[in-house]
Design a protein around this nucleic acid. Structure first.
Lengths: 360, 360
DNA sequence: GACGAGCCGA
DNA sequence: TCGGCTCGTC
């Protein structure tokens, strides 16, 4: 028995819009911690993984783990019947052959109910290794969208290169070549100081993580820009002992960033001691970053020069998730798949894409 | 000789958009009272009836009744040449083989003139009986549009069921079943209190009706929401003697509604004495309701449980008329055609659709 | 010719 | 983020 009540149907609608072109059928793996979806794209080139935290729901109950095999086109149709601000309740009984969706208008004058057939899908949940990446770019989702769209007009591939200089997106096409260099924004360092730290060691204390994330999420909805600096200070002080930054630096490439750190952050020495580790309560800021980052800012974290080439078609597709979050993170190491991650209030969507070989 | 001057070409454009897919050729029956069009749809399943009151025109003159046989595709083309806010003058001489359309820009800087060939069409004007329906739903046109669109994604038919509970639209499809329940909105009772009363006995005093309607119409364009309550009071008091409500109730099903009435309306006893009758000056409110109802509200009037099944394709088609009015009324009795009616400032468009048999 | 989806601009 | 416009499909 699953019952999950979502405050706004819009989240699910956007989520489906994000993945329905990539994947036709997928299992929504429901358990007490939330709902996960993981699937290769139809051409088995990319992998998409969605996580919806139980705590992101207004109400969530899942008695036992159950996979819900969903045809995404059908679900999209059914979700189209919801208005964005409808409350959305999804239910499935234990036999899991029907997904029941109820949409309640805000004023309850309209109640729409849909029953969708489920299907059996071979679970092919791959364990995704918790890679530590050599470089991470945190940037406005809209900017990423724009870049891959622009470049996709010129060519089919983009070389993404992260260096001390910044992050460069370069494409070559018949009519023209293009190259976009994003330098790190000074403001971004502060802004994203704790963005998405849970990526690094999500298992350390998942429960705290979730609770904090939810609490943070609701608060942020109310508070606004003004608040972010105060909160940031709070967290930095409160959590000084455990607050580790992702900033992975190699000795020969990190000077610039180290300078910044020392100017800005008291706890910088910890970061240097233990790069690529993280603390247990970072999510408050992840939420903030989401809302905060509308005004841009690029944060580049790297411990090694990275340069990889990817298919723009897929990146353009991934960038549809900009409806879910204002911020996107690109995680890269040489010769391993790119990870594109969008975090949002109730969860996260990650895309993995293998680099093209021998193209740069 | 016909000459009719319309304040805004947009009305005609929208009207044609509403019916051109349903009907290819039709007679515009012009007489001194206005212009009427009545036609079966191409597959002879639905009937569409349009009424444009003479009083709805800025100027109207029709010396003798004349049918203007129009190919709607041609007229649509010609109307596309008008800007929405152009003044539109249509003329036909007595031989009625040419329809002359003149579009005048607001500032008279541009005058466009078109001559369209007319054709002879066998008049097949059917008398439509003035049915009294067992149930009537008055609701925002946009909501009706949305519902039939949504459900048409799932299946081909919709069962519309009106009960004490409200009105339910239910469809079954391969991928999913859907059911939407609209409860009556409390605010709607007041809002639609006098909406469309002329349906019931339109012949009682047509002339007064028309005059009032036009006056009301122009006023309403200027006034807004704020005004509606005052006007309503005025009419109720001025016309107390003749102001009868539609509210048809059976003793066993009307309690809920009666309670509302008593709370809200002074003249409720009259309504109960003579249900399904109407007064002579209802149109002021019809107009108001049009503009008023953008913010929703569902009014359900019934004296009997009704449940019928219809082809969604047609309902979707009918719902195109939501460009003409913010409010739609569904009139139903068991085993007789559904009447879908949109009233607008200058007239009304009605669609009749026979129910599907043996499908529920 | 109409409908729906996707993209671009405000 | 929403609405309008354009392109592609049925």
């Amino acid at each position: 028995m699953l019952e999950a009540r979502l405050q706004e149907a819009a989240l699910l609608k956007r989520l489906l819009d994000s993945i329905k072109e990539l994947v036709t059928d997928a299992n929504f793996e429901c358990n007490e911690e939330g709902i996960n979806l993981q699937a290769m794209d139809n051409s088995h080139v990319a992998l998409v993984a969605v996580k919806l935290e139980a705590t992101g729901f207004k109400k969530y109950r899942c008695d036992r783990p159950m996979p819900l095999g969903v045809n995404l086109a059908s679900l999209t149709k059914v979700l189209k019947c919801a208005k964005d601000d409808d409350i959305c309740i999804i239910k499935a009984s234990d036999d899991a052959d029907i997904l029941n969706l109820v949409y309640e208008a805000r004023n309850s004058d309209r109640i729409a109910e849909y029953d969708m057939k489920l299907m059996d899908i071979d679970a092919e949940t791959l364990g995704i290794p918790d890679t530590e990446y050599d470089a991470r770019v945190t940037m406005p989702a809209s900017e990423f969208t724009r870049i891959v769209r622009d470049l996709s007009q010129l060519g089919e591939s983009v070389r993404i290169e992260i260096s001390k200089e910044g992050v460069r997106f370069a494409s070559e096409g018949e009519a023209a070549n293009g190259s976009i260099l994003l330098k790190q924004t000074e403001a971004a360092r502060e802004k994203y100081a704790n963005y998405g730290k849970e990526d690094e060691a999500p298992k350390e204390d998942d429960d705290d993580d979730d609770d904090d994330e939810e609490g943070g999420s609701s608060k942020k909805k109310v508070k606004k820009e003004k608040v972010k600096k105060e909160e940031k200070e709070d967290v930095e002080m409160d959590e000084e002992d455990e607050n580790e930054e992702f900033k992975v630096k190699s000795d020969d490439e990190g000077e610039e960033e180290q300078d910044d750190d020392e100017e800005e952050e008291k706890s910088s020495k910890k970061r240097k001691k233990a790069p690529a580790k993280t603390n247990g309560k970072p999510a408050k800021k992840a939420k903030k970053a989401d809302e905060t980052s509308a005004d841009g800012g690029v944060l580049i974290e790297m411990n090694q020069h990275v340069s990889l080439t990817f298919s723009l078609k897929y990146l353009v597709n991934f960038s549809k998730s900009s409806t879910l979050s204002n911020t996107v993170q690109l995680m890269m190491s040489n010769d391993v798949p790119l990870l594109v991650s969008y975090k949002f209030g109730q969860g996260e969507i990650k895309y993995y894409l293998a680099p093209k070989i021998g193209e740069e």
